[in-house]
């Protein structure tokens, strides 16, 4: 197996999925974001976003807090320290591979 393929194979599959990568990227750039913002910024459907968030929450990358603002439910998402570390490691690995492939 070539080095490039080994590198790709070692990517964190959970983050590498496009929708989850978009969610992780947004949350890495702020302290927290609500469901509506993630919905608008990613362009995902409500069900799709909800499913991806649940998956990220399950593995401890994202923290989700549900509350009410007046009569309306409000979901706030944050990147956990483990999620932040995983995202930084993924980006480093991805950019290194991209640079390597450009050569």
């Amino acid at each position: 197996m070539s080095d490039e393929i080994k590198d790709i194979a070692s990517f964190d599959r959970l983050i590498h999925e496009p929708a989850r990568l978009a969610i992780m990227a947004i949350l890495s750039a702020c302290e927290s974001a609500d469901f509506t913002y993630l919905l608008n910024a990613t362009g995902l459907s409500k069900g799709n976003l909800s499913a991806h968030l649940s998956k990220l929450e399950e593995c401890g990358y994202v923290g989700i807090a549900k509350s009410f603002k007046g009569k309306y439910p409000n979901t706030t998402c944050v990147l956990t320290p483990a999620g932040r570390r995983a995202f930084v490691a993924y980006r480093k690995q991805y950019l290194a591979l991209a640079r390597h492939l450009e050569k």
Binding site: P18, L21, A25, S28, A29, A33, N48
Partner: peptide, 19 residues
């Protein structure tokens, strides 16, 4: 979503949002 998102753009947009 099937294509890889523009991560840098998403990060920049989220950082700009506050301002």
């Amino acid at each position: 979503m099937t294509a890889q998102p523009d991560v840098d753009k998403l990060i920049r947009q989220t950082r700009q949002y506050e301002f």
